[in-house]
Structures are given as structure tokens and as C-alpha cells.
């Protein structure tokens, strides 16, 4: 194949890929281009900003911790199970990804709300978790956990079965195999999955609004603050959106860097 042809084919792929990059990046870029420095400074002074940012970081940290603590054992079990039941469960726990978040919020109200199906034995009549910060965390776990479980399940599946058999044959207990072999080997996939699920939790809007409401300092996360600001002042909303994009971008970059370092580190011979 001529060098020219090679180059042309290569360029075609790059151009096609570049179209998607443009499509994804232009709206984000427009946010920056169409917000002046003055608007941005004014926007940051908006009273909704800091309580919302603090609440967002707090709730997503808590929800991501829950997702990882509960999701890793689930993913490990799903990765090793072979039956039809396991496949059904695997598909079922992916459902929150396709359900519109507002519908997820309504479903959570019907399950955990004051008249919800679990209200009878969850809490005394007349009380419910709705409108509390805990409700924000619950909404975030609901919408973000599937992303982690999916990534973690594939990460665990990629572990060579022989490694596990060897570990077991040397007498390691199932828990020891999980903690000392499976977790370290799947670590990059788990971190990437946790980052995805954390990012989803940070952007969560619909389910939170439905299930937790919108009260500054208690349930108003950054996306809700953006939407609230949008009702009165588009520029404040743009400034808040920039804060959200920058925070998310910085944290995702950080995770990538951690991942890169951990995978590039030479394997310690055993």
C-alpha cells in the first residue's frame, strides 16, 4: 500500500473520530466562551454556590463509598456465578441506567416514601427519609451504582481463572482470595468504574429533585442549584455549570493519573 494511501486512510479515521470530539466538546467549550470573567466572578458570589458545592462533594463521597463497599462483593459474585439467576440479577441491576432519573425518583418515593411500600417497617408513621441529605445519598447510589457494578464485574472477569485456582489450592480462604488476589488484580478496572459512578452521582439531578427535594444546604446539590439559578439568572447558572465541569474534569484527570501510575509500576516479583 502506498504511503499516500496509508495516510489518507489514517486521516479518514481521524476525521470521523474528530467529528465526535467536536460534538462532545463544543457545548462544553461554549459554556466557557459565552461566560465572561465578570459573569463568572459574579456567578461564584451567588449565594447558592458554596453550600451546593460542599453538599455535592459530601454526598457523592458518601454515596461512592457505599457503592464501592457494596458493589465490589456483588460484582465479584456476579463475575464468578454461572447460573441464569446471576445473569438475571446482572441485567436487573443495570436497569437504573436506562430509567429516566425522574422516574427513578418517583419509584424511590413509592418504595421509601411516607406512604411507600417499605414505610410500614422502615420508620414510624408520619416520618420518612424524603427531604433529608440521606435521601440525596440514596438517590445518588441508585443512579450511580450500576456503572460501578458493570465495570467491576468485567474487571473481575478478566482475572485469569488459573490464578484464582492456584491461590485456592495453596489454601487461601475465599475472603483472602477476594482481598489479596482479586481486588489488587482488578484494581485499575475498579478505580475506573468508581470514577464513572462518582461522576454520574455528581451530575445526578432528576431523582434527587423528586426524592430529596430542593432545599439549600440540605438537599440542594450543585446540579439542582444550577437549575434553580437557571430560573432567574442564566449567567449564574453558567458560572455554576463551569464550576461543576471543572471539578468533575479535575477529579477524573486525577483518577486517570492514579490509574496510569498504578499500571505503569513494574510488577513486584513474587
Amino acid at each position: 500500500m502506498s504511503r499516500r494511501r496509508l495516510r489518507a486512510e489514517h486521516a479518514t479515521l481521524v476525521v470521523v473520530g474528530g467529528l465526535l470530539v467536536g460534538f462532545l466538546v463544543v457545548p462544553l467549550l461554549a459554556l466557557f466562551v459565552r461566560t465572561t470573567a465578570l459573569d463568572f466572578r459574579e456567578g461564584l458570589r451567588h449565594p447558592l454556590v458554596w453550600p451546593a458545592l460542599r453538599l455535592s462533594l459530601l454526598t457523592t463521597t458518601v454515596s461512592s463509598t457505599f457503592v464501592v463497599l457494596l458493589g465490589a462483593p456483588l460484582a465479584w459474585t456476579l463475575a464468578r456465578a454461572r447460573g441464569r439467576l446471576a445473569r438475571t440479577i446482572e441485567t436487573t441491576v443495570q436497569l437504573p441506567i436506562v430509567i429516566p432519573p425522574a422516574v427513578a425518583g418517583v419509584a424511590m418515593l413509592l418504595a421509601f416514601g411516607r406512604r411507600g411500600v417499605l414505610a410500614g417497617w422502615l420508620y414510624p408513621a408520619g416520618w420518612s427519609v424524603t427531604f433529608t441529605t440521606a435521601a440525596v445519598v440514596m438517590a445518588e447510589v441508585f443512579v450511580s451504582a450500576p456503572f460501578f457494578v458493570q465495570a467491576a464485574t468485567s474487571a473481575f472477569r478478566r482475572i485469569d481463572a488459573n490464578t484464582l485456582i492456584v491461590a485456592r489450592s495453596f489454601g487461601a480462604s475465599p475472603l483472602r482470595v477476594f482481598f489479596r488476589v482479586a481486588l489488587p488484580m482488578a484494581a485499575p478496572g475498579l478505580v475506573a468504574g468508581a470514577a464513572m459512578s462518582w461522576a454520574r452521582a455528581l451530575g445526578e439531578f432528576g431523582a434527587t429533585l423528586m426524592f430529596a427535594g430542593n432545599l439549600p444546604g440540605r438537599t440542594q446539590t450543585l446540579p439542582l442549584a444550577i437549575y434553580t439559578a437557571l430560573e432567574s439568572d442564566l449567567r449564574a447558572a453558567q458560572a455554576l455549570s463551569i464550576v461543576l465541569v471543572v471539578v468533575a474534569f479535575a477529579l477524573l484527570l486525577f483518577v486517570r493519573e492514579v490509574l496510569r501510575r498504578s499500571t505503569e509500576r513494574p510488577e513486584v516479583p513474587t
Partner: peptide, 13 residues
Amino acid sequence: AAYTVALTALVLC
């Protein structure tokens, strides 16, 4: 090259 294409797309858009 990818960088270039992305920038071109941005300029066009």
C-alpha cells in the same frame, strides 16, 4: 493529528 482535527472541528463550529 487528532488534536488538529478536534481544533478544526471547534473552529468550524
